[in-house]
Every structure is written in C-alpha cells, then in structure tokens.
Design a protein around this nucleic acid. Structure first.
Lengths: 228, 228
DNA sequence: TTAGCATAGTGTTTTCTATACACTTTTTCA
DNA sequence: TGAAAAAGTGTATAGAAAACACTATGCTAA
C-alpha cells in the first residue's frame, strides 16, 4: 500500500497502462472465455476481461500473468501478446493504453477460478453467447478469437488446450469447437500424426462401454511451433 | 510549448508511451528500412527507428503517423500495428512502453526524407546490412521483417510496395526481394492474375531496348486483404 | 535494313496435397 | 452372448502447386 499523499509527477502527461487477458478454454466442447464481474466503477456490475494496471517495475508479460493470478487464481498457462488498444476515449477515468494478451488453458485445469478483491465474480462464458462487456472488451475478444482460429491452421497452438495425456478424439473435438465444423476422423488423424508432434504414452483410456482409446502426449508441450 | 514549471501528477507511477515505426521499401531490388540518426542522448549518434512520445489526446495510430511525418516528411502510407515492447530496462531515462508499427511505402514515393529537429540524419538501409541500432530496435526490426514475409503468403500486402501503375515483372521483383529467392515467371503470373486483384491499365511501359511491358494497377489500392 | 539483344509474354505435364468416403475392432453392460 | 458405443483403419479422386522452354516485340547499332 502506498501512502495516501504520495504522487508521481512528470514533465509531460503520461497515460496509464494496463494489461487485459482473454483466457480461452474448451468446456463441454464449446470455446469459452473467462470473465470477471467488475466490483467498482466504471462499468460496475458489468462483465469484463481480467486485467489491471502495470506496475512500474514489471514487464508487460509478467503483469498479464500476475493480474490473471490475482483475479482468478489461474497460472502457468500459454500467454501471447495480442494487440494494444489505446483510443483516447476507451476509459472514462483517464487515458488508458491496454496491452492485451490471450491465453489458452487445458480442459482439465478448470479448478473453478476464485474471485479477488476487485471482482465480485469470475466465470466461464461460451464465446458465442457473451454478455455485454465493459470498455472495448468485446472488440478485444473478437480479435483474440480470430487470431486463435487463424493460428490453428499454421501452428501447434491447439495442443495448448490439451491436458498432459489425451486421445485423438479429444483433440479432434478441440479442433471442431474452434473451427465450428465437424472434421473427417481419418483425415484428421492422418494429418495430425504426420506432423509428428505427438506420441503415444502406451497407456489406454477406458471411459464408457466401448473400445478404449490410445493416449497421446505432446512431444514438446511448452512449445507452440509454426508448421508448414 | 509547455510552461517549464508545469507538471502532471498521478496517484501511481505511469510509464511513458512511445510509438516506433519500421518503414519498409524496396530500393534497387533490396528490402530496406528507414532509420534516423539520434541527435540527443541516450544513444546519441546511433541509428534508430523513427518514433516518439504519445500525445495524451491522440490515438496510437495517429501518433505513429504523426511522428513519421515529423521526423521524415513521409505520410499517407500503409501502417499496421506490430507489437508492444515494454521490458523495464529498455530505456535508461524512464520506464517506456513502445507500441511499434510497420509501414510499407511504394518504390517511387522515395522523395528523400528530410531530417527533423531530433534527428540529425535520415536514410534508407538495406535490411540485410543494418548498423547497430539504439534501444531494442534491432529486435523490433527482426519481428517486423518476419511478420512482413509471413503476410506475403496469405495477404495482398505486397501491392502496398507498388506505385499506382506497375508491371508484372516489377511485382515479381518485390516478391523475390521479400522472399529472398527467385520465382518462376509463368507460375508467378498465373497465381497473381488468378487472384483477380490487379487489372491492366491499357497502357504500356517502354524502358530499354526491348519489348514494352503491360501496365497493371491494383483494383483496391488501399485495402490489404487476407487471401485463400 | 537488318541482325542481334533484352525483356515480355505464354501452356502443358507432373507431382503432391487435400478430400471424400464405410467398415471392422474392442470393450462394457444388460 | 449380443447389442451398444466409440476407436481405429486405407484407398481412390480431385484440385493445387511446381517444373519446365520457347516465341514475341521493340530497340539499337552496324
């Protein structure tokens, strides 16, 4: 906490800088994002992206990860800078530049996120049925969604949605949710296996009254590679 | 000009925000960028990207265009946001967040850029033979170059390098400079014409002692479209 | 005037990649 | 032990990309 009377002065006016993060996951086969309900004005009671002001001595990436951790308890996920939004009127309080990120989180890491001080609630929302969002956050989500879908076709980003071990059918479901269309099972498997990015764990997954599926894992779980 | 004693105070420290621009063109069949020689500390005498501090009441895009105009006299070109750089130590004076852009300028628009107050010189530099750059500008150039080359393959961005009228051979030279490889003439023409993005002007270009080439123009010179 | 030089302009064949498509296997449970 | 449910598997076709070489046209200089 800072002393109430302390201020920081500059020869020229400076904007405030924030980071905001679009966190994607697949819930029940639907692409969903994480939103927090704003506890304070402006846009009090509205849903918004998790985010907040940059500390003067922290890197942008660190800020995005920290805010996400503080507001939702989520950490250790794939995080990539998206775009910087800075029109003069985007925040009624003062001039605010928002450096936005998007993040991908595996399906199984869905410990229900906890709300922090400046959020009265946190929750996942189907990206096709979003509530009205605060500030220009709807625009940010749209851009993040487009970037994610585009990146499916020339990178291994989809693997970031997968837990440590997964089946090919599960991976196909992720692609189908993102592309919003069904894919041919044989062609999908051929393509994915030809990339040589995943390998069998040797174990099997038994669920339901049917043939068990082989488990796979990513060869380089941390890396998102550009392919082709 | 601002009164010397005027200052701007905030409850929390704010970073400074700048925009920097990587301006590309093709000179003599080589991809080149525009650099300014710094007139003041830090990095005085070093080459750097054109750019400068954001006015508190201007949009980011406007700032990038304005700084470019002020420092080099260049305006009206294709400008796209690239990435935001913000590590804590990238400027020795104070915490500075740089929202970077890249721009493309046609070959014939090469009125020699004029240097402004805070630049002692301005000049084009072959992107393969750059001098040492100030700040983290080398990193910015690398990222811009990569983005530009990637975009060649799925957008019509190369047309932004072309003057109002151009020949297919000239356009092919641009692709070859960017990809750093020669292309088959017939396949190139087939591909470009199939996209239906350019049309004949009806005129011809006579240069040298050989058959004149047909002139073409872009159907939508302002637009950069995603293709395929 | 004409020969030769320099760049413009043009199609077809081959190879590779992407798509369409249906049945068998394995396990569980009633 | 048979029915249900998802896993797993190969081939044929169509479309896209790549390889490849000669003719056309205007200029210049002898």
């Amino acid at each position: 906490m800072r002393a109430a009377e302390e201020t920081f002065s500059y020869r020229y006016p400076h904007p405030a800088v924030t980071t905001d993060v679009v966190v994607f996951t697949i819930r029940d086969g639907r692409l969903s994002i994480l939103l927090v309900k704003r506890a304070n004005a402006p846009y009090q009671g509205n849903w918004a992206l998790p985010g907040g002001f940059l500390d003067i001595d922290e890197d942008l990436d660190t800020c995005a990860a920290r805010e996400l951790q503080e507001e939702t308890g989520i950490s250790g996920l794939y995080l990539e800078q998206l775009y910087t939004f800075g029109t003069t009127d985007r925040d009624p309080r003062e001039r605010v530049i928002s450096v936005t990120y998007y993040a991908l989180i595996p399906q199984d890491a869905l410990a229900v996120p906890r709300a922090a001080s400046d959020a009265s609630a946190v929750g996942w929302h189907d990206v096709e049925r979003l509530p009205a969002l605060a500030f220009d956050h709807a625009q940010i989500v749209t851009m993040a969604h487009r970037r994610l879908v585009a990146k499916l076709n020339y990178s291994t980003i989809a693997l970031q949605f997968m837990p440590e071990a997964f089946t090919l059918s599960e991976l196909q479901c992720v692609y189908e949710a993102l592309l919003n269309q069904t894919l041919d099972k044989r062609n999908f498997r051929k393509r994915i296996l030809a990339l040589d990015l995943i390998e069998e764990t040797g174990r099997q997954r038994r669920t339901g009254k049917h043939r068990p599926a082989r488990e796979y894992r990513a060869r380089h779980p941390e890396r998102v590679e550009i392919i082709k």
